[in-house]
Simulated assay, not measured.
Amino acid sequence: MRLRTCLNDQASAARLCGEIDASIDEALQEIRAFAYLLHPQNLTVDGLKATIERYSRGFAARTSLHVTTRMSSDIDRLSRDKQHALLRVIQEALTNVFRHAKATEVKIAVASSGRHFQLTVSDNGRGFPTDRAKSGTKAVMGVGIPAMRARLQQIGGTLHIHSDVAARHAGTTVLAVFPRDVVENKRNRKATTAVRARPSTS
C-alpha cells in the first residue's frame, strides 16, 4: 500500500523496495534456520556427541550466532530413547534462543556428575521472567519449555531455568538433569557374552 502511494516519487519508491528486499532476506534466513532446527538428525551414523557438534555448526552457520560445545563422550552410551530425547531438548533450547533471546553467543555443555548427566544451554541474550516459565505461561516461549520438560520427564529427568532480565546481557541458562545409566556398546556386550559362554576347564 505504501508503494502504491509513492509510484510517482522514484526516490521514495526505491527506499521502499530496499525495505522490502531486506524483509525478504530476513524472512528467508529465519525459514532456513527453522527448517534446520526442526530437521531430525540421524543418531545411528556418528553417535550423539558428533551429531550435536555437527548440528551446532549448522545452527551457527544459519543464524550467525557463535556456538560452542563441550560434551562428555559417555553420552554416546546412553540408550537410543535418551539420546533422541536429549537431542530434541537441545533443538528446542536453540529454537528458543534464536526466536527470543536476541543473543550473540550460545554454549552447549554435557557433563557427567555422579549418577546423573547435566545438560546446560546458556546464552548471553536479554533473558526473560523465569517465574512465568515455572507457571507454564505459554505466552513467554510458546510450547518450547513445556515440550522440553515433558521430554525430560519421560527419561526421568528434570528441567531448571535461570535468567535475570534486570542484568544486561545476563542471558538465560537451561539446565537439564537426567539419570546417567548407560548401556554397554556392542563390542563389550559380545565380549561379556563370550566369557559367560566359555566352557569350564576344571
Rank of each mutant, 00 (worst) to 15 (best):
L94V: 11
L7C: 07
L28A: 06
Q41W: 04
C17A: 12
E53C: 07
V165L: 08
P146I: 07
G125H: 10
E184W: 07
T68L: 08
P146C: 09
P129D: 10
R70L: 03
H116S: 13
A197K: 14
D164F: 04
H84W: 07
G144W: 05
G127V: 01
N124K: 00
L7R: 08
R196Q: 12
Q91V: 01
L119P: 07
Q10C: 05
D21L: 10
G157M: 09
M141E: 13
S122C: 03
I31T: 13
S56E: 01
I145C: 09
M1S: 13
T51K: 10
T201S: 12
G127P: 04
M141I: 04
R151V: 03
V174A: 06
V110I: 15
G136N: 10
S163T: 04
A33W: 04
R180A: 15
R77G: 05
K49F: 03
R132D: 12
A166W: 00
V183W: 01
V45E: 14
G156M: 07
T137F: 11
V174S: 04
V67D: 00
L86F: 00
V177E: 13
S202N: 09
L87N: 11
Q83D: 04
S72V: 01
L78T: 01
A170M: 00
K107L: 01
N42V: 01
I90H: 12
R4P: 02
N8A: 11
T130R: 12
N96M: 09
H169W: 05
K82G: 04
R132Q: 14
K107V: 02
S200F: 02
K102W: 03
K186Y: 04
I155L: 11
T192D: 12
R196K: 15
S200V: 08
A103H: 01
H116D: 14
H160I: 00
V182K: 13
N188M: 14
L86G: 02
I90N: 06
D74H: 11
I108W: 09
A167Y: 01
T63Q: 02
V183C: 08
A14I: 10
R115K: 15
A11N: 11
T63P: 06
P40I: 03
D21Y: 05
H39W: 06
R88E: 15
H116R: 12
L65N: 02
S12R: 15
A60G: 08
M148A: 12
G142N: 11
K134W: 05
L86W: 00
Q154I: 07
K102Y: 05
T120R: 15
H162L: 14
A103M: 01
V195D: 09
T193R: 15
Y55D: 02
E19I: 03
L37R: 00
T201M: 10
L94T: 06
H160E: 15
R70A: 15
D131A: 13
S56T: 12
L28S: 06
E184F: 04
A35W: 02
I145A: 11
D25A: 15
T95M: 13
R189L: 15
G125P: 11
L152T: 06
V89E: 05
T5K: 13
D25K: 13
G142T: 03
V174R: 07
L37T: 00
L28R: 14
T172L: 02
E26M: 08
A85R: 13
F178M: 06
P129H: 06
G18W: 07
V174Q: 06
E30G: 04
H100N: 09
R62A: 03
Q154V: 12
